[in-house]
Amino acid sequence: MIEKLNLTNEQEKIIKKVGEIGAENATIALSKLTGREVTLKVTDAQAISMEEIPNIIEMVEDTIFSAYTPILGILSGSMMILTPRTSGYMLIDMLNGNPPNTTKYLDRMGESALEETQNIIGNAYLNAMNDFMGTMLIPAVPRVASIYKNDVNALIRSRIKTSTDYVVTIKTDFTIENVTGIFILLLAMESLDPMMKALTERIGGGIMKFNRREVKK
């Protein structure tokens, strides 16, 4: 069972809603980038221990490509796409207009294509959050890493500044023809209050009361 922090129903609902709007924006942007039909589906929106992240990622291959971007603004967090290596190569071929199976290793051009994909999806999510919360969150410059799936945790820990072991996660699965991957948005728990405050102010206050519950171990 995944160890998670109990959020109120409203908090969970809002986090999921932010994810769904982000996914909608990202679908349009990604389909424009690739010129193909794209499916994005929010499959997880919760606050979990960072140790649990590999359990929700479920990668089928040992080597995965990650393109990650820190979030700049009032919230502290990071976003990343994770894709199995084979899918990563297919995505690079697709974006560079190459025949399938052209890419055999990750060169600078391939990295750049993955960074751009992260940019496009990440911006779509931040745009949704900014619209929804009236914030001004912007992405930093993306970076790419080729990692073993067991090292996802280390990557995430190095990318997110938080004093607790818990992070708010919004996980979205994406498919572009045979390419599969996930986009994951992670917010430090310290960001939950400013996020909910921004939302409450945005929607007039008084509609929702958010109470942080105790950590359920």
Binding site: L126, N127, M136, I138, P139
Partner: peptide
């Protein structure tokens, strides 16, 4: 710009 960077 990316979508959402209207302020910039």
């Amino acid at each position: 710009s990316a979508v959402g960077q209207e302020t910039i």
